[in-house]
Write a protein that binds this DNA or RNA. Structure first.
Length: 688
DNA sequence: GGCTCGCCTG
DNA sequence: CAGGCGAGCC
């Protein structure tokens, strides 16, 4: 066995040494395993392995080729190996004291590192005759063939190039650990010594070599552990990869092809365990890259699958919804308006009907102003509906819902019902059969009775249903909440389109109006209120009132009626308008008091120093409140009145009159006399 | 008693 | 901005 070991040593030392130039050519390092850069090795490796397997042979490759030929022609190659190895064995292995057990050497003869562990005993080998060396070489080759044949058989001739390439690197990286050491870490100690001795640069000095050996030993241990981990990762990766592969086949062919190539390569690498170490270095890089690529691909594909699935499901759901709605509409025989078709909630249904009713009622309105108001509101409403039916479903529900509920809460704050008041009358006035839609059925559950009964001003008699109620147009319903909602019209809402309002129903002092409503309701329980209340207060009216406040703080009822000709005045409307101005005054006086006190705090000693100009903070505050759009030129008279008012407050506060609870009354008495005439332009709605 | 106004509150 | 309330006026 000793002879065999020597033969291994000689032959593999030859291979190693001859391969060094090649290694240096491809690797930036000195050949040390820690310098083995997979990234650098990879291209070379691939090229040799696949692109040009037999084309270019380096020195090491030639040796590998020769070694491979020995499989077929042992004797011829034995000689060449013998001489070559004999010439280079001496300087490559000086200190290989640790002779690996014969068992290891035998088993791992095929491994390039097999010779590493054998070590060299050049001192005693030289006397050996050529004959003995030849024998040794033959035995070596025989053992090599025995160990290396499985790979050859396994991969077949097509793998020869791969084998050659591997052999090349086996030879030049012969100093490295063999797969056995990787698989059997417990043998590392034995092999490491010899292995280190193979390091070309470490053969000059024994002492240096010992220290370096230790370092290399540690590094190798780390490398081995990492290699084991890498191998495990590779195995797992391949498992996953193989599982994922079928899915990839359904994808684009380029990726699949590339991945298949990679997989094949990988399988070859793994199957050939001889060069596992070297392979690991490459696999480390390749596998990492592949892991990234494949992982990314997997992730992308999963995302794509999910995306496609979601798209399909969503589109299908939308289609189903549309189909059901249209099917329902067709089954009921209704020529549903776009709003109705899209409606899936009572509120939405009401919206659609409201619009139609609005349009029809607008045609019936004799007054131009009223028609104009309706048209405006209609335009607003239509604008909100100018969407595709699918889109409207959501948009309208949001738009319509609030207006319908809000008026109810304002009219009957104490009555909270799941559905707006207007909805119930609608279902009666609308000609659509109630059974056509479960939506209407839902409305029926909350019939109009309860809603109207909730109105404080409406007697129970109105709750009675009568045939007349069926014809109740939307206008009559909308107007009930019109007034209360209209003054909220800073934010125009569909509810304001109902020009007529009966909001005054909620006002306790409008009992006469309620009585009138009652008599009307007796004739028409669902209040054909549009007969007596053609128009209500709208946001435009509110804006107009605010602008009028620049002229008059205390408008008389006559003034209001004069400048709101488009309003069908009743006590409710009048009170509402009066209330508006009361609120305007409240804000006005609050601001005056505020700035007057601020002037006092600022140390203003003379009231004449207090002025109100268009640049004043006070004016800006007032203008922001009454002329938010700033599209109205505030009359100078208002500035004068404001300044007077501010002076009054300043004087009163300075005189400590504010201690009197009614100290403002004197001021009010002064200010109320400062009203001026409202311009004639305000009499026409076009002014706004 | 009816109405208006202002204050307070939400 | 509206509702409630009380005070004051007629």
């Amino acid at each position: 066995m000793k002879t065999i070991q020597r033969a291994f040593h000689d032959s593999f030392s030859l291979s190693m040494n001859l391969s060094l130039p090649d290694q240096n050519m491809h690797s930036s390092g000195e050949g040390c395993l820690e310098d083995d850069k997979p990234d650098v090795m990879l291209p070379c490796f691939r090229r040799n392995m696949y692109d040009e397997p037999l084309a270019s042979y380096s020195n090491g490759s030639i040796i590998s080729q020769l070694l491979r030929k020995t499989i077929h022609n042992k004797r011829a190659l034995d000689e060449s190996h013998f001489y070559l190895s004999n010439s280079t064995a001496a300087d490559s292995s000086q200190e290989d004291q640790s002779s690996v057990s014969s068992k290891d050497s035998t088993v791992e003869a095929a491994s390039p590192s097999g010779h590493v562990s054998t070590g060299s005993s050049p001192e005693g080998e030289h006397p050996i005759t050529d004959h003995l060396q030849a024998k040794r070489a033959r035995v070596e080759n025989i053992i090599r063939v025995m160990a290396g044949s499985p790979n050859s058989r396994q991969h077949g001739d097509s793998e020869r190039s791969d084998t050659d390439a591997r052999d090349t690197r086996e030879a030049r990286e012969a100093y490295r650990e063999n797969k056995r050491k990787q698989r059997l870490p417990q043998h590392q100690e034995h092999s490491d010594a010899g292995q280190v001795s193979r390091k070309p640069g470490s053969s000059s000095s024994s002492d240096n070599c010992n220290s370096k050996d230790e370092e290399c030993h540690k590094l190798k241990e780390q490398l081995h552990s990492m290699q084991r981990l890498l191998r495990q990762l590779q195995e797992k990766f391949l498992q996953v990869y193989n599982q994922e592969d079928p899915e990839y086949d359904n994808r684009d062919g380029t990726e699949v092809g590339i991945e298949h190539d990679i997989l094949e390569q990988e399988s070859r690498y793994i199957s050939s365990e001889d060069d596992f170490e070297r392979k690991n270095s490459r696999m480390t890089a390749e596998c990492k890259d592949r892991m990234k690529v494949v992982g990314c691909l997997v992730h992308q594909r999963e995302s794509q699958n999910l995306q496609e699935s979601l798209k399909q499901e969503l589109s299908r759901a939308v289609n189903d919804c549309v189909d059901r709605v249209f099917k329902k509409a067709s089954s009921t025989g209704l020529d549903l308006s776009p709003q109705q078709r899209m409606c899936s909630s009572p509120e939405i249904s009401m919206a659609g009907d409201r619009k139609s009713q609005q349009a029809s009622s607008a045609l019936d309105q004799p007054q131009a102003e009223e028609a104009a108001a309706k048209s405006r509101s209609l335009e607003y409403y239509e604008s909100s509906e100018a969407q595709s039916p699918q889109d409207q479903t959501e948009a309208l529900s949001l738009v319509v819902r609030k207006p319908t509920v809000a008026p109810l809460s304002s009219v009957t704050p104490t009555v909270k019902r799941p559905y707006p008041v207007h909805q119930t009358p609608f279902q009666f006035n609308y000609s659509t059969p109630l059974h056509d839609s479960h939506i209407l059925e839902h409305l029926l559950k909350y019939g109009p009775h309860s809603n109207f009964g909730g109105l404080p001003c409406i007697p129970p008699s109105m709750d009675r249903t009568s045939p007349d109620s069926v014809d109740l147009p939307w206008d009559t319903i909308a107007m009930r909440s019109k007034v209360t909602s209209s003054h909220l019209g800073h934010h125009p809402r569909p509810s304001s389109l109902g020009a007529v309002t009966v909001d005054n129903l909620c006002l306790p002092h409008v009992k006469i109006e309620c009585g009138e409503l009652q008599s009307m309701a007796e004739r028409n329980p669902y209040m054909s209120l549009n007969i007596s209340f053609q128009e209500g207060l709208t946001p435009s009216h509110l804006k107009k009132a605010k602008l009028m406040f620049f002229y008059t703080r205390y408008p008389s009822s006559n003034v209001l009626k004069t400048f709101f000709p488009d309003v069908k005045f009743n006590r409710c409307i009048t009170s509402q308008l009066i209330k508006w101005f009361s609120n305007f005054r409240e804000f006005y006086y609050i601001q005056m008091e505020k700035f007057a006190r601020q002037a006092i705090v600022d140390g203003v000693s003379d009231v004449k120093d207090i002025t109100v100009s268009r640049d004043s903070e006070l004016f800006r505050a007032l203008n922001m409140h009454y002329n938010k759009a700033n599209d109205f030129h505030v009359p100078d008279r208002f500035l004068e009145v404001a300044e007077i008012t501010l002076h009054e407050f300043y004087n009163a506060i300075s005189a400590a009159k504010d201690s009197d609870p009614s100290w403002k009354k004197a001021i009010y008495k002064v200010i109320c006399k400062l009203d001026s005439d409202v311009p004639e332009e305000f009499k026409t709605s076009s002014h706004l």
